[in-house]
Design a binder for these strands. Structure first.
Ligand SMILES: [Mn+2]
Ligand SMILES: [Mn+2]
Ligand SMILES: [Mn+2]
Ligand SMILES: [Mn+2]
Lengths: 137, 137
DNA sequence: CACAAAGTGTAGCCTTGGCTACAATTTGTA
DNA sequence: TACAAATTGTAGCCAAGGCTACACTTTGTG
């Protein structure tokens, strides 16, 4: 409760987990799309240099989310996969909510990428409800 | 268009303007509430140290958003006031949208603080529409 | 006025997440 | 098998935004 319920404090906390969430999610998607996930794949997806990806992957390896050996592909640990699945689900709900609201799919894609990290459980539940109710429109 | 329409690129751009938006908004509110805005007021509001506030205020002064002399109160420039008013308006709409959706006001406050920076013009317009339509419920 | 309390400044440290430049490795191909 | 291309690593730089510790100013109070 306490410190977590102060707006800016919660927002800063959201931002601290954002990179991990986006990375594990991307790794899972790339693996599903191409079999393995390499540094370049993430660099393209995030539009950052391969150096940034390498460094971030190292941090996430230390954090126990990713596994990787030198020059090898990027893999998800159990912990990472759990987070990836939860993130994808949440991301999907936010996206579908925006679409159900009448937002263009391309705008919904972009907005959802940032919004997803700031949606509480309570709000996510309402989003899901809304999609179920007026799903097609 | 182009680079701005790539999800992660847009999200990173949102984050670069986030601090400025939150600060000018807070300065305007504190001035309206207590007449003047001091470093301590912002430190309490954001729940960070006074040092962090001082440094950030300096940056925003350099950026032309805030005005301030040594040991003096924090003031808004024209540019800062413009941004503050736009940010407050957008923040308000996001908050009211969540409430109209059925979210608890305390949750809406917290979620809105992060979400506001990632809402496009298109989405903001839909939010406004939604509030107008089913405002009271 | 004098002193205490509150507010502010400054130095210096840290992590995250960006980058370029260049070196090394791996992979594809003639 | 050689060589070229692609990929990855490493060094070193930067800005934003956090912090503590300590010094200095300003403000309030007896
Ligand atoms: Mn995201
Ligand atoms: Mn954000
Ligand atoms: Mn705000
Ligand atoms: Mn905010």
């Amino acid at each position: 409760m306490s410190e977590n319920s102060r707006p800016h404090v919660r927002t800063r906390r959201d931002h601290r987990t954002e990179t991990a969430e986006d990375y594990v999610e991307a790794v899972l998607q790339v693996i599903n799309e191409r079999g393995v996930c390499r540094v370049v794949d993430l660099a393209k997806r995030f539009a950052v240099s391969h150096v940034t990806v390498t460094k971030t992957v190292s941090r996430l390896k230390t954090g126990g989310y990713l596994a990787r050996e030198l020059y090898g592909p990027i893999e998800l640990t159990r912990k990472g996969r759990r987070m990836a699945e939860a993130s994808m689900e949440r991301h999907r709900i936010v996206y579908e909510f925006l679409v159900a609201l009448g937002i263009t799919s391309s705008t919904a894609e972009v907005d959802a990428e940032g919004m997803e990290h700031h949606v509480s459980e309570e709000t996510l539940a309402k989003f899901k409800e809304f999609v179920a109710a007026r799903g097609g429109k």
